[in-house]
Simulated scan of single mutants.
Amino acid sequence: MRLATVRRGGVAVVVALTDGGLRELTGMLPDPRTAVDPFVQLIEIIDELDPDVIAAQPLVEEHVSTFAPLVPRPGKIVAAPVNYHDHQEEMKVAGNVSALGFFLKSPASVLAHGGTVRLPYTDRRFDQEGELAFVIKKRARHIDPGDFLEYIAGYTCLLDITMRGGEDRSTRKSFDTFTPVGPYLVTPEEVGCLDDLTLRCSVNGILRQDADISDLIWGVPRFLSYASSVMTLEPGDIVTTGTPAGVGEIAEGDVIEVSIDRIGTLSVTVSAQGAVECPTEGAKSGPRPPAQVTPVRRRTSASELFNVNTFC
């Protein structure tokens, strides 16, 4: 099942992609009149959705709708820092996710597929980071890694746009528009085994990142389990798993695409319109990515190197 949020006439509606087109699911929500995010309402009942009932819902004409952020108002965005060994190597940092844990991004940073990333400053470097992400479907605390699928509504593509420098991670990654996500949420049974997935990210059609999801240092079960041991996760929260090597600078006019097998392709453009000088002094500190994009290369998977159990 593929689900999304689209904007039609200025109103956000939840839809499912079917063979017959986009079907509006408003009529299937428990109470569409409440202020609760309709997408969050939908994923709370996702296990009860009947494909035959979905196929009978009204069609949404695609030419009069545009994608909205997949989860327009996530409660929180939980992100994995340095979760691929090749990214740790290219950034020349000592610690990875095993030492760093996670960081939070502002919920206001979400951006829809087809949207525009807006760079805030003229004198700072900004990079693209393509990632696999997932959305929580029910309240979660102290999850056993073996039970991870009980808490995942589905998977999606995400870009963690990053300002380089010495400011706190959450600051450098939380500007408005710095978390493009989507276009669709794809349910676990349609995605299948995560170890079979490959992530690719390109800028202006040039491949920058190419990695197997099995290369994650902490796979989805372990990272989700850890995050839930620190805080309660709620329906609609977005969890993103980190980026592989190949991060690189982005600028005005760039087109960024992230593709993941069986999940889809997220595409956004970049604008520097309205950018100003940065008021903070972090530009000359913090981890420094290479001046040139790390060459794309295939590597032995982390599951082979470290015998990581990813629970396929």
Rank of each mutant, 00 (worst) to 15 (best):
P120N: 03
Y184Q: 09
F148P: 00
V117K: 01
R139H: 08
T171G: 03
T156E: 07
R118A: 14
K137L: 11
R141S: 14
G130L: 05
R139E: 15
S170N: 13
R172F: 01
Y184I: 10
A153P: 09
G146D: 14
R172P: 06
Y184L: 12
P145W: 07
R125C: 04
I161K: 00
K173P: 08
E167R: 10
L159C: 10
R172Q: 13
V135D: 03
K138Y: 00
I152P: 05
K173M: 09
S170D: 06
I143C: 06
T177F: 01
D123H: 07
R141Q: 14
R118M: 10
L158K: 11
D147V: 01
Y184N: 10
F175P: 05
D147F: 06
P183F: 06
G165P: 00
E150Y: 11
R141C: 04
L132A: 09
S174E: 03
R172S: 12
L132K: 08
F148D: 03
E167W: 04
R169I: 11
V117Q: 01
T122V: 15
P180L: 01
I161R: 02
R118S: 13
P120F: 03
L119M: 08
L158E: 11
L149V: 10
Y151H: 15
F175A: 13
T156D: 08
I143Q: 05
K173A: 04
D123Q: 08
P145C: 05
G182F: 02
C157V: 03
R118I: 04
T171N: 10
L149D: 07
H142V: 09
G146K: 12
F126H: 12
L158R: 11
P183I: 12
L119Y: 00
R169N: 13
